[in-house]
Design a protein around this nucleic acid. Sequence first.
DNA 1: GCCGTTTTCGGCCCGACTGTTTTCAGTCG
Length: 584
Amino acid sequence: MAEINRDKLADVLDDIALLLELKGENPFKIRAYRNGAETVRSFDGDIVQRAAEDNLKDIKGIGDALQQKLHELATTGSLQFHKDLKAEFPDALFELFELPGLGPKKIKVLYDKLAIASLGALQRACESGQVATLAGFGEKTASKILTAIDQRQRFAGRYVLAQAGLDAELILDELRQHPAVTRVAVAGSYRRAKETVHDLDFLVSTKDPAAVLSWFTGREGLEEIIAQGDTKASVRLAKGMQCDLRAVSDAEFPFALLYFTGSKEHNVALRRLALKQNLTLNEYHLAPLEGAKREDPTPALTTEGDIYRELGLNYIEPELREDRGELQAASAGLLPKLIEQENLRGTFHNHTTESDGRSTLEEMVEAAIDLGLDYLGISDHSKSSFQARGLDEERLLQQIQSIRTLNKDHKGFRIFAGSEVDILKDGTLDFSDDLLAQLDYCVASVHASFSLSENEMTKRVIRAMENPHVTMLGHMTGRLLLRREAYAINHDKIIDCAAATGTVIELNCSSKRMDMDWRWWHRARDKGVKCSINPDAHHASHLQNLHFGVRVARKGWLRREDVLNCLPLPEVEEWLRTAKGKRP
DNA sequence: GCCGTTTTCGGCCCGACTGTTTTCAGTCG
């Protein structure tokens, strides 16, 4: 039986939705499958187990048909209905969905009329002029497709959060200085702090949209202008990222900001809520449904908070807007007070030139002080990570001494001596317990043997977490965003083990990692697991990534009290001195 | 396909832009 997990269940439902779209099925049926996929992804509990037991009835969004299909998937590892649908179309056809401008309807026409089922065939058909003759297609469509195929090679199309941040902040600054601009914001997945984004969505309020839009499309160094209308323009930056700008009136601004921040799922849920109150919500206003009776006119709403309040909700922070329970929490007054960057007092898991860092111990300390932190943990690699010049026992003991000495020069700032110790293939650690006991703390991480089965990997990591000297688990899945997949590991079991052993889980906020993934933190938090937001800095400048770490922690519903490195120095010292099983 | 203090049938979020169309379908967010 094929190994089945939560993601596999959700992916099959999404795949069915796509296949049904190609077949031209009822769009609401398609939406039901997509909703089902999202429900599976965000379900709080062991959805695979529930599916195997055929016990999904009370889960909103899963009806008889989806329950039956999920049950078949969970018990047999595959789904006949899915296989049959897939057999109707060649695999290569699905590449076509990656081209902007092509959706299920057009792809179906290409497939039905010209038997086009791959990027190569599509390129040839565009070049030969066949595509332009199809009903609903034309010369421009054909040439746009050719451009899209070409660009697909050059621009992978997604960017990590910190990377997008450079362009986002620059363009925001320029927009703020534009004389015709009143209010400005960057919305979209960047504002929601998704770990990767595919474009940047800017929003301005202005009395002169034409002036702002023409400034936007006239900026220097653009790769292309994708679209330009009266209120909206899209451009591609030289580095390939798409940026959209929307111009609205100042009265419309909060509605547009809410709308363009998304997520799409959050918006849909919000509009459904509005409808229940006989209101209709769009990007311009909140208004009574036509014909609906409403006692009072909607009062002036000038901020997003006003709109939420009008709908009977507390203000929902952008990071939470993923339709993962935030509307219910806002309605019940149960939203968390999310962590803020100024709550961070220090950070663990940082490297120096002793292993593979590029800044010295002293440079790292200066950078931490400049950032306003009160403590910094140094955890260079251990000896098995020879590719990273990992420290052996002798060098680690010397480093501990250097740190103790350097601490004497700093009043009110503390450097903690730690290690990022390798979790070996069998779950044992790279250093003896005696040596680990001499450290202030220890981060344990997997750096090799990524291809173990989920079961073996989970056991391996659990064994390491059961060590009384392991303070925290480093980058839990080893993923590198947009570059390397996470290794297989059972999140539920690791979180349970962290709760049982008092092991902290790291939120590694290196821009390429953001690991453990934000989708799991709410659950971990509720089980009492502590988080440590760590930049895994290999250069003094990488401490800046704490900013994005905090934003992703917010996305995981984390509060100040859930994060170890929000503790003030005296308390974190006390916490580290206390034996692992007895910590608060 | 899902769902119900209007319900077991008839709804299901909404608008801009583009390209192909003489009034709109498709795509995107």
